[in-house]
Design a protein around this nucleic acid. Structure first.
Lengths: 224, 224
DNA sequence: GCAAAAGTGTTCGGCGTACACCCATGC
DNA sequence: GCATGGGTGTACGCCGAACACTTTTGC
């Protein structure tokens, strides 16, 4: 780890001391029916010009979760979302023998709430999962592990709450699932299954979109 | 973390330098139909006299997995078993603010293969899961996470291969499952389900135990 | 009236679960 | 011959998967 994903904020410390513990946050979102991940363009060696998963050193007195929350907020301005520890890597770096580790987390965010950090150096950007560029270090492995976990989590938790606004239509929810699972789902089965879970509940509101029948809005229960 | 689970081998280093990264290994076995975990009695402060999950500092040039394998071998003499990363904790210690982390792993071992390290200080011992002593630091949390993962892994993987000798009877296999799940299972359903997974296959051998019909021996496939 | 998305039921196969009796052996 | 554990089959309920038509609206 060490320098594998240090952004502008940490870039100064990088030369001063190699941190022993870093936190990486794989930030997913779904826009236009496409699963996307937030990546940072590295503006200094090593791996200058390559893209990497956002991350930085664990700061003094911070818990791992606090560091992940902070990192997520720095990059997206978002708090209070699905955020879960993923896996810890010791050899993400070009220099695996230095004893440093990277603790990877993954987060799910509603694109409507995101305000990306405005920088020209260490520029952040969304990348569609089926078009990610070459990544610095071994970040491809991290991303792959994150994607697998996301697919699993979706099956038996309400994690999707974190990818959608407070209310949403069944179609929107289904598109989120389809984008993550990478395959189309049957409308009737999807609706029945989701309502059976009690993750979501109907609201009394409808939304009129265009020249077609208005859609009922739903919300995740246990939130708001 | 830091000193939370350092055994005799690392005890000397403990005073010299607080390691930034430690590895813990939750080692499970099943003996006499009881799920047991290996614990180490701490022979020096902090938490002297309390029991803890075995662990130690990540050594120079070592990957996390190598450290876990080494730790497991030091304590049990066993290699080549189910060993999987569990979770990483930053605040296992009494002193959570020191920036050190503990990467927890969990392992499953066949009791017949184990040769416990013979020490009087930092003495290792097996404890039944429903009778563990008070643990040092926050090791109870680690143990609880490990047990949950073990229960899950059992459902959809062949992890149990690591708890049994190369061949075994259906009854022995079922007892392992029952010990871990903590409830009795139906003999017919168990047999049918396990054979359906293709994790195990019948051998041509039988074992005669006592004054009753001999039992067929099975083996895990994809091992040996 | 027509285009577009919303909404709705039934059938089928597989899987987990409950449940009871005969079989082979040693003493 | 009897005690002990080994070994086997069926019925049912639930769940995921496949599949097509009617409804409501805007234009």
């Amino acid at each position: 780890m060490t320098t594998s994903s240090v952004d502008a904020a940490e870039a100064g410390q990088e030369a001063a001391r190699r941190p022993d513990v870093a936190v990486l946050v794989v930030i997913f979102t779904v826009v236009d029916s496409a699963l996307q991940v937030l990546l940072i363009e590295r503006s200094a060696p090593p791996a200058e010009g390559e893209w990497a998963i956002p991350g930085g050193a664990l700061q003094h007195g911070e818990s791992l979760e606090q560091a992940a929350v902070r990192k997520l907020a720095e990059e997206t301005g978002v708090t209070d979302v699905f955020l879960e520890q993923l896996y810890t890597f010791a050899d993400l770096d070009a220099s695996p023998a230095d004893g440093s580790v990277g603790v990877a987390w993954f987060a799910l965010v509603d694109p409507a709430r995101v305000r990306l950090a405005q920088r020209t150096a260490w520029r952040p950007g969304w990348w569609s999962l089926d078009a990610v560029p070459r990544l610095a270090f071994d970040n491809e492995r991290v991303l792959e592990v994150a994607r697998e976990r996301l697919i699993n989590k979706l099956q038996y938790t309400d994690a999707a709450y974190s990818l959608l606004p407070p209310t949403f239509t069944m179609r929107e929810l289904q598109q989120v699932y389809e984008a993550i699972l990478g395959r189309p789902l049957d409308k009737r089965n999807f609706r029945r299954r989701l309502l059976a879970t009690d993750f979501i509940a109907a609201t009394s509101e409808m939304r009129s979109d265009g020249r077609h029948r208005p859609a009922r809005l739903y919300r995740f229960v246990g939130r708001f």
